[in-house]
Structure formats: structure tokens, C-alpha cells
Amino acid sequence: MTQRPRGRAIAPAAAAVGALLLTSCGGGSGSPENTTPKPGPSVEVKLRAPLLQRPVDQARLLPSELAAVGRAELITRAACMRRYGFDYRVDFTKSLHATLPDRSYGVMSEEQASRYGYHMAPDVDPRVPANQEKQTDLVSAEKARTAEDRRVEHLLLYGSESDRITDADIQRGESARPRAEAKVIGEYKGKPVREGGCYEEARTAIVGDGGSERNPVAMGIYLRSFDEARKDPEVRKVVKAWSSCMARRGYEYDTPLDAGNDLPTARKPAPDAHEKKVALADIACKNDTSLIRVWSTVEARYEQRAMAKEKKAIAAETERKRGMVRRALAVLGSTEGAAD
């Protein structure tokens, strides 16, 4: 394997694409008319309510919302590729609602503890456990036959031949950016090819601007408030009470964030009966001490304080999130199988 240059991997995207388009002549196969999934009737899609509702979540995207936005982007990306004649579709390999659980204070539901101990539910983990591979790529296409076909396909998808991410990608994660008309970098089958390809076209269509799916101010408040609450005397007191409760049951842990990590099954693919027993004791102690209620109340206080100092940014990010989720759910609601 060749060592790539390290550090920030920036590809001169537009220029490189120009070079590649110069010689590209391969392409995809299949008729878009035959492969377009039949849109189902438009239905209202609702995401499940999270276990905890934080003040800052008005502007922060939850894992379930990130999944919905991501799925809508895939559907839009596939439609863009079909426009160029590529046989793209989206395989919905898992439920829209199987998303990473909130583990802010460790394992947080009795149902999770009794079924999976400290492990993640198998349906949120997209790997086949035996070989550590993703089950499938959601966007799939007829396999490109030649290297040239693969190259063209990659160009249309990403607007670049490089698998490195660009400077624009890096900047995007840090803030919302104005939506700009993507530069036309070439032409394929008489249709314009734009900078960023179908990937960027789909992302921009759902996100609504040139930024990423991350709302950075809300994310910052969420992370900092957790850390501040963790050190708050009220939280320290309830954590100590939880720790004493666990000790009475024969388990030595200083904090619920460390619980289960020392178990022999922690790094194995599945929990055993003992792990589930410890996780259930953990939940029982959380219930006895009201740990989740106390900790989340203190955390909410820190969030509200921080949000009051960032009113303008939070209002903008709240609006941005609403738009993102609204557009995503509209796409899912009109695509058969997308909201199951």
C-alpha cells in the first residue's frame, strides 16, 4: 500500500476534474426510465421522539434526524445519477428508526439493558459482526465494467476523481455557508456536470445551503454543557449516590460512564447474561437515585444559559435545522419504503 501525503488532504478538485474529463469517454448503462423507483403516495413521516429532549435540540440535529437527512440525500443522489443514465437506486437495508441510542449517562433504558447489556443493538450497527463489513452500500449501481467506467462514475458522483476531501469539505463542517451556484466543470451526455457532482447537488438540496449537516453553535453548547454539568456539585452528588447503589449490588464503578467497560464481554460481539445483569443493576440504580432526571435537569440549565448568550446564532440554526428536516422528511414521505 502506498503512503499518501499526510496532513490536510486537499484535492485541486475543479482542475483535476478538467484533466479527467479531457479523456473520459466511458459511462454507465441502464435506462433511467426502467430503474426509477415508483414514488409512493406522499405520506407524512414522523421520527420517533428521543429519550431525552434537550433545550439545545431545537437547533442540534439528533442522530435520528441526521439519519433522515442522510437517507434523503442518498435518494436525491441516486436520482441525480439516473439523470446521467446510471442505474442507481437506494436499498433500505435497515429501519429509518434504528439509530444510535442516547448514551449520555451510559445505558439509559431497561429494554436496551435487558436485551443488549452495554452493547449497541445489532440493527443500529451496520456491520455484519463476523467480518466487520458494512452490510451494503445504500446507493448501489450496476457494477462498472472497466476502470474508465468507474472513473466517469466517480466524477459524476463527486465532481472529482480524488478520494480525498477538499478544502471546501473541511470548511463546511465548521459553519453554515451561503448557497452558491456550483460551477459547471464539464458535460456528460449533453447534461452539465457541476463541481461536487451528484453528491454535492443532493447535499445542498436537502441541507439548503453550502454548509454541512452539522449546526456548530448548537453542537458546541451541547458538548460544553454536558461537561459543565458533569462537574456540577448536584451531579457529582447523584453520581456518588448511584455509585454507592451499585456497590451495594456488588459492582464497583465511580461513574455510569465507565460502567461495563471492564467486563470480559465488553470487546466481544455480544453480551452474556452477566453483562445484562450488571446493565440492569445500573438502570435500577439510575431509577433509585433519579440520576437521569437530576443530571439532565442540571445540563439543561447550562444549555439554557449558553443559548441565552447565543440567541441570534441559535435562532438561525433552529431555522436551518427545521428546513433540513422538513425537506428530508418530504423526500422520505414520497419514496416507497424510505420511512419504514
Partner: peptide, 23 residues
């Protein structure tokens, strides 16, 4: 923040970066 996917998490969207983690 913690082992075993506990505590809060910083989320990095597909094909993008966070130059400096918040917490």
C-alpha cells in the same frame, strides 16, 4: 467522550471534517 459509546458525542457528517473538536 467515554469508552463504550458513553457520554456525549461530536458528530462529523459524511465526507467532512472538524478541525478542532468542541469538547
Amino acid at each position: 467522550f467515554n469508552s463504550g459509546w458513553s457520554g456525549v458525542a461530536d458528530y462529523i457528517p459524511a465526507r467532512s471534517s472538524v478541525e478542532r473538536f468542541v469538547r
